[in-house]
Design a protein around this nucleic acid. Structure first.
Length: 425
RNA sequence: GGAGAGGUGGCCGAGUGGUCGAAGGCGCAGCACUGGAAAUGCUGUAUAGGGGCAACUCUAUCGAGGGUUCGAAUCCCUCCCUCUCCGCCA
């Protein structure tokens, strides 16, 4: 959420910066609401002050010996009642305006960082670097072909269990997924991340706090009777881990790594990535998350991205790092790097991690502050996938595929998987 | 699911209608004392919003929401959460 003071003092900045995201908006209506709400607050609080004075007077008069039912006290009572009625009216208007203001502010995305490159779509993203040598050969198979041959997961039977876009990992596939999760958690653990296993059903306040609600309700699965939703990403519960808290500055940064299943409706992606592990309603992800001091968030963004890159490098998976342009960034982000892994079978780079700094955007929605000596201020939050597990498996299968049909695994994974290769069962 | 107890400031804990944002203690910070420290003493120490250059000031907040009252931490209603016991369950 954007700062209401910014709306008041510098609305041009908002229109200008959100313009970089390709939005054209007219804030005059919103500004008017903000001004009215402020005026009402002033009137109301002045009236309340008067009411408080009267209340005290009554007490004092009675204590001084005035009859509790005498005319003097009765006059004050009447006056108090009149004020009470006026306050009630103002309060109602004020509440309505505040709700409207908040509701509208919640739909505005974060302002892009000055560093974020301008652009309107993914074609304007900027490649920052490439790591590793992509495997390019004729006749390489895609991961779902390999997986089918090796019996790593069931797709058709998963439709029986649930729906399309679900898989059931089987045998070495299930084991590999588990190995990857443990490997990633351990790796990040050595870098000062504290492991978290949060609830994966979250309430509306949590989704609002990280920015998924109110705008993206159609992307999440909901348990309607309980005000609970299936998390689309661990970012949601981890943000709310510290919702409504004031964190002592010396405890920052707080660095968390969370493994969770993630659930997404993938509305509007009919026919895209229908085979394999790339786009599922349920997938596993290891997520990195930082709460940090505003002064350090820029360097933290470099660090969290480097921590995600380290996973790809340890797994010997060639990738490229791109910076998203303003038109392609997510709702809560002010600046984002995507990591794209090379899929030799598909012959293309594919997003496997997205590392964003959100500034105080989520912190304001979630009321997460820091206390530095006397002053409290909003913290900055960052998140990054470290990594999307299913896509990592896809990359490993395509990268390690051998002429004999087996899949060679990177050395780092062997102790976790318990074998050097995935083979025909 | 049934029965009971309870939710007050960073923490503990007092407060059952009147100047209570809230005694006292702990913790923390500053100052004094000291060669330095401990101990001791003094002072300060919540959050959000509004006004003011500032000193400061106004409003709200004692789990949440509503009600009674001139006035609510205190009385009434609804909800949420925590704890204990019983049942059930992985």
């Amino acid at each position: 959420m954007l700062d209401q003071r910014l709306l008041r003092d510098n609305p041009e900045l908002i229109t200008e910066q959100l313009g970089r995201r390709g939005m054209t908006l007219d804030l005059t209506g919103l500004q008017l609401i903000a001004k009215q709400a402020r005026d009402l607050e002033e009137q109301r609080s002045n009236l309340q002050a008067e009411g408080n004075r009267i209340g005290k007077d009554v007490g004092l008069k009675i204590k001084a010996g005035a009859a509790a039912n005498g005319p003097e006290v009765q006059a004050l009572r009447d006056q108090g009642n009149r004020i009470k009625q006026q306050v009630a009216v103002l309060e109602e208007e004020e509440k309505a305006l505040d709700a409207k203001l908040r509701e509208q502010l919640l739909t505005l995305p974060n302002l892009p960082s000055p560093e974020a490159p301008n652009g309107s779509s993914e074609t304007d993203n900027i490649e920052i670097k490439r790591w590793g040598t992509p495997r390019v050969e004729e006749g390489l198979q895609e991961h779902w072909q390999i997986a089918e041959r090796l019996g790593l997961f069931e797709t058709e039977r998963s439709v029986r269990i649930a729906q399309s876009r679900f898989v059931t990992l089987m045998g070495q596939g299930a084991r590999l997924e588990r190995a990857l999760i443990s490997f990633m958690l351990d790796l990040h653990g050595t870098k000062g991340y504290r492991e978290v296993m949060p609830p994966i059903l979250v309430n509306s306040a949590s989704l609002t706090g990280s920015g998924q609600l109110p705008k993206f309700a159609e992307e999440s699965f909901r348990c309607a009777e309980d005000d609970l939703w299936l998390t689309p990403t661990a970012e949601v519960p981890v943000t709310s881990l510290h919702r409504d808290e004031v964190i002592p500055a010396e405890q920052l940064p707080l660095k968390y790594v969370a493994y969770t299943p993630c659930f997404r409706r993938e509305a509007g992606s009919y026919g895209r990535d229908t085979r394999g592990l790339i786009r599922l309603h349920q997938f596993n992800k290891v997520e990195l998350y930082w709460f940090c001091h505003p002064e350090h968030s820029a360097e933290a963004h470099q660090q969290i991205t480097a921590d995600a890159e380290a996973v790809l490098e340890a797994l010997e998976l060639p990738y490229r790092k791109i910076e998203l342009c303003t038109g392609d960034m997510g709702f809560s982000a002010s600046r984002t790097y995507d990591l794209e892994v090379w899929l030799p079978g598909a012959g293309s780079y594919r997003e496997i991690s997205s590392c964003s700094v959100c500034g105080d955007f989520q912190a304001r929605r979630s009321a997460i502050r820091l206390k530095d000596g006397k002053a409290t201020q909003l913290v900055h939050t960052l998140n990054g996938s470290g990594l999307a597990v299913g896509r990592t498996m896809a990359a490993l299968l395509e990268t390690g595929q051998q002429a004999d049909g087996s899949v060679q695994l990177p050395a780092a994974l062997v102790p976790y998987f318990g074998a050097e290769r995935v083979t025909t069962p």
